[in-house]
């Protein structure tokens, strides 16, 4: 009776080790739910201290955060556009020309914080500064819209 228990315990431990070994090999670097991240950080690289009032034509700084959890290297483009509060929608791209474009290729589980400097040429109240994340898809050989973030700004001063 004790012999059987000993056999079961010893074989059980070894089978458990084998299962962990094999599953570790096959599950390594698998992303169950692939996703990408886009974040907008203030000048101190935190989710705070965002500029709210900027002068026309004056440079201001922000940080773009992009993270890749797609399970493979991803090629991203972040398009910066100008909009208004009327057309705010995170799930569709803004129908406006890009005022700046930032590209990057990230490994799986890699993220990057890229400092950017912008200046706006026209006055406006509640100007929506939109950052759109686009991902390159090899089957269509084009970039596809993924998500967007934005910041409201009051742009004051003499128009350029």
């Amino acid at each position: 009776m004790i012999d059987d228990d000993l056999k079961v315990a010893a074989v059980g431990v070894i089978v458990l080790i084998a299962v962990f070994n094999v599953s570790g090999y096959y599950l390594a670097n698998r992303n169950v739910e692939p996703f990408s991240e886009l974040g907008l950080l203030g000048p101190t690289q935190k989710i705070a201290d965002y500029p709210t009032n900027v002068l026309t034509g004056q440079n201001f700084s922000l940080d773009l955060y992009v993270g890749n959890h797609e399970g493979e290297p991803s090629y991203y483009q972040v398009l910066t556009k100008l909009g208004t509060s009327a057309n705010a929608n995170q799930s569709v791209p803004l129908d406006a020309p890009a005022i700046a474009t930032y590209g990057m290729v990230l490994m799986n589980n890699q993220n990057v914080t890229e400092p950017i400097t912008l200046s706006l040429d026209h006055n406006g109240t509640n100007v929506r500064l939109v950052f759109e994340l686009w991902i390159y898809e090899t089957n269509t050989t084009s970039f596809h819209f993924y998500t967007s973030d934005w910041l409201y700004l009051n742009v004051t001063g003499p128009s350029a």
Binding site: I2, D3, K7, I14, N21, Y25
Partner: peptide, 25 residues
């Protein structure tokens, strides 16, 4: 190489399980 080493490790563990079954008591 990784697949071969995984197969060798699994085979070694299987052999160890047989030995354990026979000799642990």
């Amino acid at each position: 190489d990784a697949q071969v080493s995984l197969a060798v490790e699994t085979a070694a563990l299987a052999a160890l399980a047989v030995l354990a079954y026979l000799y642990v008591p």
